[in-house]
């Protein structure tokens, strides 16, 4: 037996090992050695970011206005992750899924959904907002804290042109595929509202 024989034997390893090594993203958890010093540094950074966010929302409300489309996109982008895109198969109402590697942002995911469903280019994602029952709470020493909510609602606003893509046959399935695609974040939404022209179009 030689090293090459062993190398050849590797050819018969199970498919899941090959796929696992192919799809693996940067090995963050185990491979990075989180010693105490590094952990303290990361914790300090997180505290700084949270403080900066609280100050910005309190004193600079215009900067965090949700009127602008795509707002917050850069902050939430995780590059090149697999996302399931749902689409209607060849003009039928059968919903299929495809895993696509792309930037993990609502805009990029919506563009991919459009492409797979042959939605015209003039249909745009105007706003993507997650609302929760979280709230700010004033502390005893004059500081403000944030109590994280446990009920989440996803509000998605599309441009008016989306209405032209809906017909009696595909309406329910197309909207369902959009709901499934855009709820890609691992959050259990209480409700998802698809809004077009100020009106909610889904059930």
């Amino acid at each position: 037996m030689t090293g090459k024989d062993l190398y050849d034997a590797m050819n018969s390893i199970e498919d899941n090992f090959i796929r696992e090594a192919d799809e693996a993203v940067p090995l963050k958890k185990g491979v990075f050695n989180l010693n105490r010093k590094r952990f303290t540094g990361i914790a300090a950074c997180i505290v700084l970011v949270v403080c900066a966010f609280v100050i910005m929302t309190k004193f600079l409300p215009n900067l965090t206005s949700s009127k602008e489309p795509h707002q917050g996109e850069a902050a939430t982008a995780i590059q090149n992750d697999y996302v399931k895109i749902y689409y209607l198969e060849n003009g039928t109402t059968k919903i299929k899924e495809e895993s696509v590697k792309l930037d993990y942002t609502p805009q990029k995911i919506f563009q991919e959904w459009k492409k797979l469903n042959s939605i015209p280019n003039n249909v745009n994602l105007v706003d993507y907002k997650i609302e929760s029952n979280g709230y700010e709470k004033a502390g005893s020493s004059g500081t403000t804290g944030y109590v994280v909510g446990d009920v989440f609602t996803l509000n998605v606003t599309l441009s008016d042109e989306f209405m032209t893509c809906l017909n009696q046959n595909n309406r329910t399935a197309l909207i369902e595929s959009l709901e499934k695609t855009l709820s890609y974040q691992k959050i259990n939404f209480k409700s998802i509202n698809i809004i077009v022209g100020g009106q909610k179009v889904n059930n």
């Binding site: 062993l6 190398y7 034997a9 590797m10 050819n11 018969s12 390893i13 199970e14 090992f17 090959i18 696992e20 090594a21 192919d22 693996a24 090995l27 185990g30 491979v31």
Partner: peptide, 23 residues
């Protein structure tokens, strides 16, 4: 044996091993 061995080790060293000796 190689297949069984890969089941016994942790995910991260396994991924590195497969990248090196399969890919």
């Amino acid at each position: 044996s190689v297949n069984r061995f890969l089941h016994t080790i942790d995910r991260e060293p396994r991924i590195i091993f497969v990248r090196r000796y399969w890919y």
